[in-house]
Design a binder for these strands. Structure first.
Lengths: 126, 126
DNA sequence: CGGAATCCGCCGTGATACTG
DNA sequence: CAGTATCACGGCGGATTCCG
């Protein structure tokens, strides 16, 4: 598939989603927005994310300027993460998405159940 | 990783993102929101999506009650897709995300460039 | 035209082990 | 505690082919 007649807007949006659109990024931002400052393992436990993915996600978020990383050189190493201003601004659209999600999850569930039920029914009649 | 102390909200949000959070779903919804009604190949050309992914994405969106599928039994088969009410309501948070994306894409690009430049510098000094 | 089916490469993700 | 490195697996996603 080449870029024949693709709309540029879709490409741009696609680009952004490729950056901050993944599940873990969103959840990390939400958590930091909620608690202000969190340590590595606090985030890990809170999100139920694997150590690897959290590490990668935080690095990306820091790279994209959404998250601030502070390293404390103490005996038990201590690293704290907070949102940058850009990260704060990201809260708004994310919050909107989260609200919609929570509001409509049950609706989606019902639609899905109905769809599946109908599919089974048709399968039987076929 | 088990559900030890994961916050339920994160789980819910995660759930929803797993449903309508993927790139293609978002782009399909945006396109349908913009044009109202589109045929299969119209969407395909517009998005630059492969036939397979569009088919899968549309089926999922229909299953989740976000998209309406209308089959016209004419000689050249004609299938039209539109947004359901639920799909329409999804436009709001998506629009917010898209706006933020377009507004901050350049900022992210700069942050990323700066981060990469610094990383290279450290690599050299090391 | 609108799909379904198949094959296959790539990479996102988790589990594990190791370092400082 | 806060990572990094390695491995293994599943699934996303594209290309191709066939059908109604």
């Amino acid at each position: 598939m080449r870029e024949d007649e693709k709309c540029p807007d879709c490409q741009r949006i696609n680009e952004v989603l490729a950056r901050v659109g993944d599940r873990w990024s969103v959840l990390v931002v939400i958590s930091l927005a909620q608690y202000g400052t969190l340590r590595f393992n606090e985030l890990k436990r809170h999100l139920g994310i694997s150590q690897r993915m959290l590490s990668l996600t935080l690095k990306e978020l820091e790279r994209d300027g959404l998250v601030n990383r502070t390293y404390h050189a103490v005996i038990p190493p201590k690293v704290e993460y907070t949102l940058t201003e850009l990260g704060q601004s990201f809260r708004e659209p994310v919050k909107a998405l989260g609200m919609w999600a929570l509001d409509n999850l049950s609706t989606i569930d019902r639609a899905r159940a109905a769809y599946d039920a109908e599919s089974e029914g048709q399968a039987k009649s076929a």
